[in-house]
């Protein structure tokens, strides 16, 4: 019993320990890491992956998995860029990007919850198809010419805090509230914890599962809108493998791939950890190949400790 508590506590706080240690090491190696200017960078760089990770969190907690968010970001970003060239008020590309993401998400959800397809297969399908759609709509070329006002969304800041980070914070607050406080949130956990049990308890599991994919899609749409603003162009090839970073943030942050477990705080730290690794190694001027190695090691160790920390039920 004692032993189990120690290791489960370790698994709970492992990610925080790693995070703090990393920050300290980086600060010692390169004091400019902790300068306000770079902290703002980290916030900016964490924003899009953070928003995606929060969408992914809903899906994974409900027992699913979404490979398609990267493609959805690109698709929504292309649509936003096409509509954001001064031809419409800014609200139009914003809403269209969200709706496009939502549509992909609902499609994923229906395939998984109604069509009974494994989430991996269904979202692999949409990942490929939606990427194709992005290339088709953009004719394979980057979409240029978005308005100054649109660019400004990602480039501006309020009281020194970048707008992107403000979007992220809003997403974090809403998602955390929904998961922790609402009946809906509780049922998301129940579906992922034991789908059959949730069904028998009278929960509309189909709705819950479709809706988690819809949330992931919606947030991918938002990310696409912001992404276009940040890079000032709509790129059909953008956000390649962003789903992997989102999944990494979740897993490292303690969201269990088998569903039913996960807390927003962990995902925030997971997102920051990934960003800090990239940012820190960039600042150190270390070859970017190291980033991959460090990230990979942290994923495996985090999950290993997570698995070991859980008592196996017989």
């Amino acid at each position: 019993m004692e032993k189990k508590n120690v290791s489960s506590r370790l698994s709970q706080y492992f990610i925080y320990i790693i995070f703090v240690a990393l920050v300290i090491v980086l600060t010692i190696l390169k004091p400019s890491f902790i300068q306000p200017g770079n902290l703002v960078n980290i916030l900016k760089q964490a924003s899009i992956n953070g928003i995606l990770a929060f969408g992914m969190m809903f899906v994974i907690i409900a027992g699913g998995f979404d490979m398609s968010v990267g493609s959805t970001v690109a698709f929504a970003g292309i649509l936003a860029a096409l509509l954001g060239r001064g031809n419409f008020p800014l609200i139009v590309p914003f809403l269209v990007a969200l709706l496009a993401g939502l549509a992909v998400g609902i499609l994923n959800g229906i395939g998984v919850a109604v069509g009974d397809l494994p989430p991996f297969i269904m979202t692999l399908g949409t990942m490929t198809a939606v990427r194709g759609l992005a290339l088709l709509v953009s004719n394979g070329k980057p979409v240029t010419g978005i308005t100054k006002a649109y660019r400004k969304i990602a480039a501006s800041s309020v009281a020194g805090i970048p707008m992107l980070a403000i979007f992220l914070v809003i997403v974090i607050i809403i998602c955390s509230f929904v998961l922790a406080k609402t009946v809906y949130g509780r049922r998301v956990y129940a579906c992922g914890g034991n789908l059959q049990a949730a069904k028998v308890a009278g929960i509309n599991t189909t709705f819950i599962r479709v809706s988690t994919f819809a949330i992931a899609g919606l947030l991918a749409g938002l990310s696409g809108f912001l992404m276009t603003s940040r890079v000032t162009i709509g790129q059909p090839t953008a956000a390649e493998s962003y789903e992997m970073d989102a999944i990494t943030a979740c897993v490292v942050g303690g969201v269990s791939m088998s569903g039913g477990v996960g807390h927003p705080v962990g995902v925030i730290i997971g997102t920051l950890l990934i960003t800090v690794i990239a940012n820190g190694l960039d600042i150190l001027g270390v070859s970017s190949h190291w980033q991959k190695i460090v990230k990979g090691v942290i994923i495996v160790v985090a999950v290993l400790i997570d698995v070991k920390g859980k008592s196996k039920k017989d």
């Binding site: 890491f33 770079n38 090839t237 990239a278 960039d282």
Partner: peptide
């Protein structure tokens, strides 16, 4: 070859 990734990297560089 990615715009967003280059953007993040250069942001980090410029602060150091």
């Amino acid at each position: 070859w990615d715009t967003a990734q280059a953007q993040s990297t250069v942001e980090s560089w410029l602060s150091a």
